[in-house]
Simulated scan of single mutants.
Amino acid sequence: MDGRTLTFKAQGDVLRVAGSVDEDIVAVLQERLADFVAAHRGGVVWVDVDEVDFLPSAGIGALVAAQGAALRSGGLLTLVAADGTLAARVFGLMGIEHDAELRGRPTA
């Protein structure tokens, strides 16, 4: 490994992912996404990847698979990537739907 790291911070219905997704750590991303979706089974959740600075195809696959898992459980997972971020550029090139900010969340 080259020192890249990946961190996760869950805040209610939002999971913030930061750092570098590489082939050595994509399994950790898959596991954390699966756990997050399972913990909110049937609910609406957001995965914020604004601070992801490396996102290969395996990482994109993990994110899209988590969206599918959420849908199969009766929920919805929205990817969040601000305009100009690496993730937003990648999603745009690949035609992956995402929001530029956390929208549509119920307010407390």
Rank of each mutant, 00 (worst) to 15 (best):
D99T: 03
S73D: 13
S57N: 07
D22H: 12
Q30H: 05
G19K: 11
L102Q: 08
G95Y: 02
V26R: 12
H40G: 06
A39L: 07
G74R: 08
T7N: 14
E97A: 14
I60Q: 01
L63M: 11
Q30I: 00
P56W: 11
T5L: 04
D35F: 11
A100K: 02
M1L: 06
D35E: 15
D13F: 06
L15Y: 03
A10N: 05
D50W: 06
G104S: 10
T85H: 00
G59L: 13
R89P: 01
A18G: 08
V14S: 05
A62W: 14
F8Y: 14
E51F: 04
F36R: 09
L77R: 12
A69K: 13
A39Q: 14
A87I: 05
I60A: 04
A39I: 04
A70I: 08
R32V: 15
D2R: 12
A88M: 03
G95L: 02
G43P: 10
D83V: 00
A82L: 00
A87T: 11
D53M: 01
Q67L: 04
V17P: 07
E31T: 09
V21Q: 05
G92F: 03
L77H: 13
A38K: 15
A10M: 01
G61P: 02
L86G: 09
G75D: 10
G42K: 09
A100W: 02
V26P: 10
L29Q: 08
D35N: 13
P56N: 07
A81H: 00
G104A: 05
S73I: 00
G104D: 09
G92D: 12
D50S: 13
E23G: 00
W46M: 07
G92E: 06
G43W: 10
L79E: 08
E97F: 03
L77W: 14
L71M: 09
V80T: 11
V64K: 10
A65W: 02
I96F: 01
G59F: 14
G59D: 09
A18P: 05
I96E: 01
A65H: 06
G42P: 10
L93N: 06
L76E: 15
G42T: 11
A10W: 00
L102H: 11
L79V: 08
D24R: 11
M94E: 10
G19W: 06
Q67I: 10
L76P: 02
G92I: 03
F36N: 07
L6E: 07
R103W: 00
L79D: 07
E97R: 12
S57K: 08
A38W: 03
D99W: 03
G19P: 12
G3M: 06
D2C: 07
E51W: 03
D83P: 12
R103Q: 08
R103Y: 01
G43Q: 15
T85P: 02
G95H: 05
F8D: 07
P56R: 07
G61M: 03
V64C: 08
H98Q: 00
V47K: 14
F91N: 04
P106I: 00
G75C: 08
L15D: 05
A108H: 03
H98T: 03
D24W: 10
V47P: 13
L71E: 15
T78A: 13
I96S: 03
T7E: 15
R89E: 07
D2E: 12
V80S: 08
V47M: 13
V64I: 15
L33V: 04
A82T: 01
V90Y: 09
A81P: 02
R4G: 15
R32K: 15
A100Q: 09
